[in-house]
Design a binder for these strands. Structure first.
Length: 340
DNA sequence: AATAGCTACAACCGCATGCAT
DNA sequence: AATGCATGCGGTTGTAGCTAT
C-alpha cells in the first residue's frame, strides 16, 4: 500500500481544489461508509455527498480497485497467472475482459502484474510478450548454429556431408529460419488450449518409439543417448507443415554470413548440439542467454513431459511449451536412412 | 550509514463508449 | 441526429519501499 502524503498537499488548483494523489485512511473510511449506506454509482455527486474533496472518477477508481470488499488480495497463483497468459495471447491488452475471468482481481491489478512480472519473465525466456512467440533473431540463431559447430570441432567453412556425424542440412537451416518468421502466423498458436493439449499429448506419448513422433523441446537435464544413436544420425528433415512460408536464399545467406562464412558456405552442424545447447550450456557461453532463464533448462527429448518442483519452474514451463509447439509442429522428424 | 538504482503498484489522464435527452 | 453526461478502459506516471553498492 502506498502511504499517504501529508493531508493538505497535492490539491488540484485548477479543479476546484479537489485533492489528488494517495488516499488517506480517513478518506477511505468516508468512502466506505457512504457506499455502505447509499450504494455506489452517481460518482460525480458521490464525493460531495460523502464529504470528500475528490473527483468522482478518483472515488470510483479507489472503490473498484482497492476498497471493494470482494477484492482478492495477495500473490497471484500459478493458475491465475496461466489464465492471464493464455487470455492475453488471445485478447491482447483487454485487461477488463481478462479480469472478468479472474474473480476478485481488478483490471488494474492484472495490468500491473502483467507489466511488472509476467511480461519481464516472458522476455527473459525469449518470448515476445506481444505475440507470445519465441523471439530469436537471426543473430541468435547464428549463435546457436555456430556454437554447435564449435562444440563438434567442425571446420567452420566445411561444406557437405561429414560421414558418421550429424550434419546441418540446408533444409534444416531453411526450416529454422522459416520457423522464426512463421511463429506469429500459425493460427494454432493462438489457441488458448494448445499448451495444455500439447502437455496432454506429451503425457500420452510412448517414449520408446522415436520413429513417428514429433520431437519436442522440453525442460530436462540430459539428452538421452538413444536419441543420438537411433534418431539423429539417420534423420531426414522435411517440411511437413504447409503453413511455413518459403524463405529466400538471402535469408539463409544472412545466417551463414553471421557465421563468418564469406559467400555463405554451409558449416557442418550437429543437431543434437543445437538442442542441447539450449539446456546444458552455461549462460556465459555462446548460446543465447535469452532462452536460458536460470530456472529453465530445455533440451532435445522425445515426447516426454516434465515434472516441475518449484513455482518458478512451473511458470517457466510456459516457455518450454512454446518451444515444444514450434519445434514439434515445424519439424516433423521422420526416421529414414540417408539424411542428405 | 548513505544513497543511487530498481521494483511494484496505486493513482492519474485522456480517450472511448453507452445512454438519456 | 446531435449533444452532454456518466462510466469504463488502457496507457502512463509518481512514489514508497527494497536492494545493491
Amino acid at each position: 500500500m502506498v502511504a499517504a502524503k501529508s493531508p493538505n498537499s497535492n490539491y488540484d488548483q485548477k479543479n476546484n481544489g479537489l485533492k489528488k494523489g494517495p488516499w488517506t485512511p480517513e478518506e477511505d473510511q468516508k468512502l466506505i461508509d457512504y457506499i455502505q449506506k447509499h450504494g455506489y454509482g452517481k460518482w460525480r455527486t458521490l464525493p460531495k455527498n460523502a464529504g470528500l474533496k475528490r473527483c468522482g472518477k478518483s472515488c470510483r477508481l479507489r472503490w473498484t480497485n482497492y476498497l471493494r470488499p470482494d477484492i482478492k488480495r495477495g500473490k497471484f497463483s500459478f493458475e491465475e497467472e496461466e489464465t492471464i497468459i493464455q487470455l492475453h495471447s488471445i485478447l491482447g491488452n483487454k485487461w477488463s475482459t481478462i479480469a472478468a475471468s479472474l474473480p476478485g482481481r481488478t483490471d488494474n491489478e492484472i495490468k500491473n502484474y502483467w507489466n511488472t512480472h509476467i511480461k519481464k519473465r516472458l522476455m527473459k525466456m525469449g518470448i515476445d510478450p506481444v505475440t507470445h512467440t519465441p523471439c530469436l533473431d537471426i543473430q541468435q540463431l547464428s549463435s546457436i548454429i555456430l556454437n554447435s559447430s564449435q562444440l563438434n570441432n567442425y571446420p567452420p567453412n566445411s561444406i557437405g556431408i561429414m560421414p558418421n556425424t550429424n550434419i546441418l542440412n540446408p533444409t534444416l537451416l531453411s526450416l529454422l529460419t522459416a520457423l522464426l518468421s512463421s511463429q506469429s502466423q500459425n493460427p494454432d498458436f493462438q489457441n488458448p488450449n494448445f499448451h495444455h493439449n500439447h502437455l496432454d499429448d506429451s503425457n500420452n506419448n510412448n517414449n520408446n518409439n522415436y520413429s513417428t513422433q514429433n520431437f519436442q523441446l522440453l525442460p530436462s537435464q540430459e539428452v538421452p543417448n538413444n536419441i543420438q544413436e537411433n534418431q539423429i544420425q539417420n534423420t531426414h528433415f522435411s517440411f511437413q507443415n504447409s503453413s511455413l512460408p518459403n524463405i529466400g536464399d538471402d535469408q539463409c545467406m544472412s545466417v551463414m554470413e553471421n557465421l563468418g562464412n564469406e559467400g555463405g558456405s554451409m558449416p557442418n552442424f550437429d543437431l543434437r548440439s543445437l538442442f542441447s545447447s539450449y539446456s546444458t550450456t552455461p549462460s556465459s557461453s555462446a548460446s543465447p542467454s535469452t532462452l536460458n532463464s536460470s530456472a529453465s533448462s530445455t533440451t532435445f527429448v522425445n515426447g516426454t513431459n516434465t515434472t516441475t518442483t518449484s513455482t518458478e519452474d512451473e511458470r517457466d514451463t510456459y516457455c518450454s511449451n512454446v518451444m515444444m509447439y514450434n519445434i514439434s509442429n515445424g519439424l516433423n522428424v521422420i526416421n529414414e536412412s540417408g539424411f542428405l
